[in-house]
Simulated assay, not measured.
Amino acid sequence: MLIEIAQPLLYKALQAVSRAMSSQNVIPILSGIKVQADAAGLSLTAGQTGLLLHYHIPCDNEQLQIKQMGSIVIPAYYFIHIVRHLPTGSLSLGSNEDLKVIIQGGKAVYHLCGMNAELFPQVAQTDYSHTMSFPNGSLKKIIDGVSFAISSSQSRPVLTGVACIREDNQVKWVATDGVRLASRITPIKNIALTTAAIIIIPGKHLIDFSRMLNDELATTDICIQDHMIVLKTGSLLMQSSLLEGSYPCTDRLKPDSFSTEITLDRNDFLRALERVSLLAGDSDVVKLDIISYHKVELSSKTTAVGDVMEEVDMEACMGEAISIYFNGKYMIDIIGAVDCSKVMLRLNGKWSPIIVQPMDSTNSLYIITPIRWRD
C-alpha cells in the first residue's frame, strides 16, 4: 500500500475514528487502526468490542493520491501522535508484505510494525433500503435529550442503553437509571426497520456519535439489522452491537391524574436549581416548597457548611400546596435537556414520581423519583 495525503485530512480522519479506541481492549488487533486504500478511496476503521467507527475519504479528493492499493493495521497510539506532529503539508503512508509501515512527512521518516488487516473486524454490508433518516441537528437533540438518564451501573446492563420502541408511525426513545426517566417521540415515514419492536442501543455509543455531529445541516441514516445498528453521516459510519435483554415497561410510571401542577420559566428554574444545589452536599437533596400560588421556594443545606433558600416565580399553579425532596443534580440534568421556555411540574403527593413536561411539546416527557428525606 502506498498513498500520499494532506496531513490535516488524515489527522481529521484519525480524530474521528479514535473515539472508538479503548485502553481496555483485550484483543491485540483492536489496539490498532485499520487503513485500507482501494479503488473507492481511503478508509480508516477503529473499534472495540461491540463498536466500530469507520471514516471514508473518496478517491476523487484532491488531497489524496492512491499510488498502490492495500491494507494494514497500524498501532493507534503511535499513528495518531506521529500524524499530529508532522508538518501540515503532504505526507506519504506505505506498507510492505512484511507488515512494515513507513510514514514520511517533511524530513521525518517513521518505521512502525503493522498488523495483518485480515484479522481486523469487518464493517458489515448494510442494506439501506429500510432506514430512518434524521437531520443531524434533530438527531443530536434526541440523543442529548434522553441519554443523560442512562445508568452508569453494569448491575442491569439494559439500563446503560437507550431503548428505541417502534409504535405505529413513530419511535419512542427512552432512557432510565431507575431514579429518573427521559423519553422523546419522533415520527418516522418507514417502519419496516426490524422485526423487533424494541431495540436497546448502548447509550455511551450514542453519546459519542452525538458529539461527532458537527454538521447539523447534514443527515444521518440509521439502519437496524441482525442485532446491530449502523449510523452513517457523510464520511463517518458507526456500527454498534445492540444490548440483549428485556427493557422495563415504563408506560405505567405516569399517573392518570395529579394533585398539583405548577408552571415555571425554564431558565429561571434551572439557574435557581444550580445555585441552590451548591450547598446540597454529597446527598444532592433539594427541597421544593409551594409557598403561594405565585412562588415556589427551593432550599438545600449541608451540616457544618450552611444552607440556602431561593424563591422562584411561578407562571401558574393548580391544586394543593406541597413540599417535596428530589436529587438536585438529576433535576438539573432534566431541565437542562428541555428545549422550550416553559416547563410544567406535575405532582401527585410527596412520594409519587414528579412528571416534568415541556409546555410546547407533548413528544417529550421526563420523570424523577422523589427522595424520602427529613429536615
Rank of each mutant, 00 (worst) to 15 (best):
Leu10Lys: 07
Leu10Ala: 04
Leu14Lys: 01
Arg19Ala: 05
Gln24Glu: 07
Gln24Leu: 04
Asn25Thr: 00
Val26Met: 05
Leu30Cys: 06
Gly32Glu: 03
Ala40Gln: 08
Gly47Trp: 04
Ile57Gly: 02
Cys59Val: 14
Leu64Phe: 06
Gln68Ile: 12
Gly70Asp: 02
Tyr77Lys: 04
Tyr77Ile: 08
Phe79Asp: 02
Phe79Gln: 02
Arg84Asp: 11
Leu86Phe: 09
Leu86Tyr: 09
Leu99Phe: 12
Gly105Ser: 05
Tyr110Gly: 05
Gln125Met: 14
Asp127Leu: 03
Phe134Asn: 00
Lys141Phe: 08
Asp144Ala: 07
Gly145Trp: 04
Ser147Gly: 06
Ser155Thr: 15
Arg156Lys: 06
Val158Tyr: 00
Gly161Trp: 00
Gly161Glu: 03
Val162Asn: 07
Gln170Pro: 02
Gln170Cys: 13
Val179Tyr: 13
Ala182Asn: 03
Ser183Thr: 03
Ile188Val: 15
Lys189Ile: 08
Asn190Leu: 10
Ile191Phe: 07
Ala192Arg: 10
Ile199Tyr: 03
Pro202Tyr: 00
Leu213Gly: 00
Leu217His: 05
Cys223Val: 15
Cys223Leu: 13
Leu231Gly: 00
Ser241Met: 15
Cys249Lys: 03
Cys249Tyr: 02
Thr250Lys: 03
Thr250Pro: 06
Arg252Ala: 13
Asp256Arg: 11
Asp256Val: 14
Glu261His: 12
Glu261Met: 14
Asp265Tyr: 05
Arg266Ser: 12
Val276Ser: 03
Ser277Phe: 00
Ala280Ser: 15
Leu288Asn: 08
Leu288Arg: 07
Ser292Asn: 12
Val296Cys: 15
Glu297Leu: 14
Asp307Lys: 11
Val308Met: 14
Met309Asp: 10
Met318Pro: 00
Met331Thr: 06
Met331Asn: 07
Met331Gly: 08
Ile334Cys: 13
Cys340Leu: 06
